[in-house]
C-alpha cells in the first residue's frame, strides 16, 4: 500500500499525538537529572520538585510585599491588555475590512494605505508609543493593535472581496441596498473568517504583549518572566511559559468551538 493511503487507527493516533510531548518532557528530565547530579544547586534545569515549589509560591501563596497571588494578578493584567488589544483590532478589522471589501471608493482610498501600514515593524514603533502614550496599559494595547489590526483588516477585506460576485448581484436583484447587503449577506459570511483570523493572530498578539511588558511594566506575565530572569529563576520562567502557551491554546480552541456553534454552516461548507 502507498504511504499516502496508510492511516493510523484511533489508538495509534492518540499515541502519535502524545509522542512529541512525552519525548520533550523525557529529554528535559534527562538533562535536568544529569545537571543536578553534577551540581545540586544548579538553576538552569530545575527538576519537578523545584517547579512544584515555584508554582506553589507564585500561585497559591500571597506575595510578602504586595499580598497578591502573583500568577493570578499577572494573568489578569496580561489578559486584560491582550483582549483589549484584540478587541479593538477586531472591531477595526470588521468595519474597515468590510468597507474596503465592499466599497470601491474606500478601497481606492484605504487599501494601499493599510498595505503600507501593515509593513511597518510594530516593535520599531514601541519607543514612539511609550513617549506619546506613557508607560501604562495604553501603549501596550496600542502596540497589539498596531501589530495585529492591519493584517486582520487586509484579511477580512480579501475575504469580503472573495465572495462570489453572483451572490452580491443576486442580493441586489432581491432589492437589497448597500447597507442591507452588508448586514445580511457580507457580514455573516465574513464573521467565521474573522474568528479564524483572530485565532491566527493570537501568536503575534502575545508576542507584542510580552515584548511591551518586558520593556516597561509593573505587572503581567511578560513582566514577571523578564524580572525573574535576573535571578536565573528558571523554576518560575518555565511554568510561566507553559501557562502562557496553555492560555493561547485554550483561547484558540474556544474560538474555533464558538465558530462552529454560532455558524454551523461554515463547517458544512468546508466539508462540501
Amino acid at each position: 500500500m502507498r504511504w499516502i493511503n496508510t492511516r493510523p487507527g484511533r489508538g495509534a493516533q492518540l499515541t502519535l499525538l502524545l509522542l512529541p510531548f512525552v519525548l520533550l518532557i523525557a529529554a528535559y528530565s534527562a538533562g535536568s537529572v544529569a545537571r543536578l547530579a553534577e551540581n545540586p544547586s544548579d538553576k538552569l534545569l530545575p527538576n519537578l520538585a523545584g517547579f512544584a515549589d515555584a508554582i506553589n509560591r507564585m500561585a497559591f501563596l500571597p506575595d510578602p510585599r504586595t499580598g497578591e497571588y502573583l500568577l493570578w494578578s499577572d494573568t489578569v493584567a496580561s489578559l486584560i491588555r491582550l483582549f483589549a488589544g484584540l478587541g479593538i483590532s477586531t472591531v477595526m478589522a470588521l468595519v474597515l475590512g468590510m468597507a474596503i471589501g465592499m466599497l470601491p471608493y474606500l478601497r481606492a482610498l484605504l487599501s494601499p494605505f493599510v498595505a503600507v501600514i501593515s509593513m511597518v515593524p510594530p516593535l520599531a514603533l514601541l519607543p514612539i508609543l511609550f513617549i506619546i502614550m506613557g508607560l501604562g496599559d495604553a501603549s501596550k494595547i496600542a502596540l497589539i493593535v498596531i501589530g495585529v489590526a492591519p493584517t486582520m483588516v487586509r484579511d477580512l477585506a480579501l475575504k469580503a472581496l472573495e465572495l462570489p460576485r453572483e451572490q452580491i448581484i443576486k442580493a441586489e436583484t432581491l432589492g437589497g441596498s448597500s447597507w442591507q447587503i452588508a448586514l445580511r449577506v457580507v457580514l455573516p459570511q465574513i464573521l467565521p473568517r474573522l474568528i479564524t483570523c483572530l485565532r491566527l493572530q493570537l501568536g503575534p498578539a502575545w508576542l507584542f504583549l510580552i515584548a511591551a511588558e518586558a520593556i516597561s511594566s509593573d505587572s503581567g506575565l511578560g513582566y514577571r518572566i523578564f524580572l525573574v530572569r535576573r535571578y536565573l529563576s528558571m523554576d518560575i520562567i518555565f511554568p510561566y511559559v507553559v501557562w502562557i502557551t496553555l492560555l493561547a491554546v485554550v483561547t484558540n480552541y474556544i474560538l474555533d468551538r464558538v465558530r462552529i456553534a454560532v455558524f454551523p454552516w461554515s463547517e458544512l461548507e468546508k466539508q462540501a
Partner: peptide
C-alpha cells in the same frame, strides 16, 4: 444596476450558504 424588477438564477453561487 441590478434591481428587484429583474430576478436572476446563476449556474452556481445563486443561494446564500449562510
Amino acid at each position: 444596476e441590478p434591481g428587484r424588477d429583474r430576478g436572476v438564477v446563476f449556474q452556481r453561487y445563486s443561494v446564500f450558504p449562510h
